[in-house]
C-alpha cells in the first residue's frame, strides 16, 4: 500500500516543531512512531500535507523523575517505559497497560506513549480501505451525516477510544503537558479527550502533547489494568479497565475505575469511589457492586463499532472492572516498600 504525497519536516528542537505546527495548522501532523498515523494515511483517512518528525527531538524522548512522580516525554518509546528501572514495581498497572499495546517485539521499538494516548478513535466502519468505504455514503467521522455503528443511524459518531495506556493513567490521575507556539498548559489526562467521535482530542491544530506526568501512587495504593482481546498480541482492546485502589487501616479510602474501549473517551466511573469508600478490602460484595455500576454506566455507549458483538462487550464490562479492582486491591500492600 502506498502513502499519499506529503512533505517531510525534521525540526531540530521543540520550538522549531511548534513553529511548523503553527504554520501548517490542520494540514500538519506530528510523526512519532507512525504505527497509527501511517496506517490511516495509507487508508486515506488522514491526508496531511506536512509530516513533522520527532526523530531529532531527544528532549521529548526522556523519562525524568520529579518529587511527585515520573515525567515521561511524549515521544518515549513503549519499550523504554517497560525497561525503566523499578517502574514495574512502582506502577504495575501502567506497566501492564504498556505491555499490552500492539506486539512486544515490534510496536514497542517504534510506538510511543504520546502516540498511544493521542491515537485516533476507531470503528469497524471507518478504519477500512477507501475501496471498502466507497461502497456507501461517508459516515459522520468521514465527513458524512450518519453512523453505521448505531442501529438506525445517528447524528453522533460512535467511534471508540482504544488507547490502552489511557484508562489506567486516568485512574492514577495522571496529567499531560500540552505545548503550542503560544505557550504551555497542564491538565488532567481526562481533559485531553473531548468525547466527540469525529475529533476525539481537545488539542488545537497547533498544539502537541509533550509530557505525561504519572504521580507516585503513594503508600497503601495498588494499580491494575485488564484488557480483553481475542489474541494476545496486535489486537486492539475489545474492552479494558484501569483501576487504582488505596487502603488505610482496614478500609478502602480511594478507588478510581476507568473503562476503556467502550466509548468515545475513556469512561470514568465516579460511583466506584462512593461504593468502595470505607468498605473493608475483603468485601467481595462491594467489588461486585462497583463492577455493576461500571456496567450500567458503560451500557449506553457500547455500539456495533467492533467486530465483536456489542452484547458480549456489555456483559464483559463488569468482569473486566472487577478483575482490575481486585488486582489493584491485592497490590495495596506492595507499594509501601518503595
Amino acid at each position: 500500500m502506498r502513502l499519499p504525497a506529503f512533505d517531510y519536516e525534521l525540526p531540530g528542537n521543540l520550538d522549531e516543531a511548534l513553529e511548523l505546527l503553527n504554520t501548517y495548522g490542520p494540514n500538519g501532523k506530528i510523526l512519532a512512531g507512525g504505527t497509527d498515523l501511517l496506517v490511516r494515511m495509507k487508508q486515506g483517512l488522514a491526508l496531511p500535507t506536512h509530516l513533522i518528525s520527532l526523530k531529532a527531538l531527544p528532549e521529548l524522548a526522556t523519562i525524568r523523575e520529579s518529587e511527585v512522580g515520573l515525567r515521561i516525554g511524549a515521544a518515549v518509546r513503549l519499550r523504554d517505559i517497560l525497561t525503566y528501572p523499578t517502574l514495574e514495581d512502582r506502577v504495575p498497572g501502567f506497566f501492564e497497560a504498556v505491555s499490552s499495546i500492539g506486539a512486544p517485539s515490534i510496536q514497542h521499538f517504534s510506538g510511543t506513549i504520546g502516540g498511544n494516548l493521542c491515537q485516533d478513535n476507531r470503528c469497524q466502519f471507518y478504519n477500512q480501505s477507501s475501496f471498502f468505504r466507497k461502497a456507501r455514503q461517508p459516515c459522520n467521522k468521514a465527513g458524512g451525516k450518519t453512523c453505521y455503528a448505531w442501529e438506525g443511524g445517528s447524528d453522533k459518531c460512535y467511534s471508540v477510544c482504544q488507547s490502552d495506556a489511557a484508562p489506567v493513567l486516568m485512574a492514577m490521575e495522571a496529567e499531560v503537558v500540552v505545548r503550542s507556539k503560544q505557550g504551555e498548559r497542564t491538565m488532567p489526562l481526562a481533559e485531553l479527550y473531548s468525547s466527540v467521535g469525529e475529533r476525539p482530542l481537545t488539542l488545537a491544530d497547533d498544539e502537541m502533547l509533550t509530557e505525561i506526568r504519572v504521580p507516585n501512587p503513594g503508600p497503601g495504593t495498588g494499580t491494575a489494568f485488564e484488557k480483553l482481546t481475542y489474541r494476545s498480541a496486535i489486537d486492539y482492546a475489545v474492552l479494558s479497565a484501569g483501576a487504582l485502589v488505596q487502603t488505610e487501616g482496614e478500609r478502602i479510602t480511594r478507588a478510581r475505575l476507568v473503562i476503556g474501549a467502550v466509548s468515545r473517551a475513556p469512561l470514568g466511573i465516579p460511583t466506584a469511589q462512593n461504593i468502595l469508600q470505607g468498605r473493608p478490602p475483603g468485601d467481595e460484595e462491594a467489588l461486585d457492586e462497583a463492577a455493576r455500576a461500571a456496567a450500567n454506566a458503560a451500557e449506553a455507549f457500547i455500539a456495533n463499532n467492533m467486530a465483536q458483538p456489542a452484547e458480549y462487550r456489555k456483559q464483559m464490562v463488569s468482569v473486566m472492572a472487577k478483575r482490575a479492582l481486585s488486582r489493584a486491591l491485592s497490590r495495596t500492600g506492595m507499594t509501601e516498600a518503595t
Binding site: G34, T35, L38, V39, K42, A103, Q107, F109, S110, I234
Partner: peptide, 22 residues
C-alpha cells in the same frame, strides 16, 4: 498495516515494521 510482520527488518538491531517506517 503493521499487523502481519512479514516486512520486519532490524533498525539498529531492533525489529521494526518496514512498511510503517518512512
Amino acid at each position: 498495516e503493521g499487523v502481519c510482520g512479514s516486512c520486519t527488518v532490524l533498525k539498529d538491531g531492533n525489529p521494526v515494521r518496514a512498511c510503517l517506517t518512512l
